[in-house]
Design a protein around this nucleic acid. Structure first.
Lengths: 123, 123
DNA sequence: TATAATGTGTATATAAGATATATACACATT
DNA sequence: AATGTGTATATATCTTATATACACATTATA
């Protein structure tokens, strides 16, 4: 599993990691029960502190995506897809609202937006 | 001019202010040459520090949206609309890419997205 | 079978950077 | 002179990331 972080990103490192693991789980690249790289292994791979990768895993645990067992490792938890979809849909709506706000600022019509969306979706 | 900040937002206060002023300028609510509230007045209105409102105005100045004169105040600068549109379009594309990534995670089709976009646009 | 080594996650203390504040300074207008 | 304006400095708090040590579990070796 490939995780890429950017030190120049405005986003905290632990959030970049969280986001990418979440995405892998949601798109099925990581299935329920699969083990995640250990916090040390991932820290080594990314050349960051284990506390940073632990922070990322903690966020994922809080959100119910994974669970960890001392001495054993971290694993993908059973996903409640309905709840996840619901939450994601809310995020998407928020993101689209921001897009619309920005579009109105530069006089971009709904049509323009839809074409842009179609173009980007098919890339 | 109405600015609303949220202390519970993840976004720094100065960024919330910057964003809202930017939006007012871009949507024409604030025209070139118009004066902005003084950093003290705005600080008072929002019950925050003048250094925070100054931070917001600084960002706007750096980005070319406004200019400030010691002893006089801050004003909306002449906007280079072409450049602004270009930059905004990039932001919109990034935002739409994030939307698409999130949509794919929950199996939302382009059609679903288009409909949701249309619905939100017409609210 | 017992123990050491090596894997795993967890906890604590600390450092650096970001954000916000209080206060004082300097310029302009009234 | 008073009161408006923006600017600068020092400080506090919070967030983020790190180094190091601790505890549990598994594996390898004697």
């Amino acid at each position: 599993m490939q995780i890429i972080i950017s030190n120049s990103s405005k986003e905290p490192i632990y959030e970049q990691i969280t986001k990418q693991i979440k995405s892998s789980i949601l798109t099925g690249k990581l299935q329920e029960g699969m083990s995640l790289p250990s916090i040390r292994q991932l820290a080594k791979d990314l050349q960051i502190s284990v506390i940073t990768t632990k922070r990322a895993y903690e966020e994922l645990e809080k959100a119910g995506f994974i669970y960890s067992i001392v001495g054993k490792g971290s694993f993908v938890a059973e996903q409640n897809l309905e709840v996840i979809k619901e939450k994601k849909l809310k995020v998407i709506e928020e993101q689209l609202s921001a897009v619309i706000t920005n579009s109105r600022e530069i006089g971009l019509s709904l049509n323009d937006l839809q074409e842009l969306l179609k173009f980007l979706y098919e890339e």
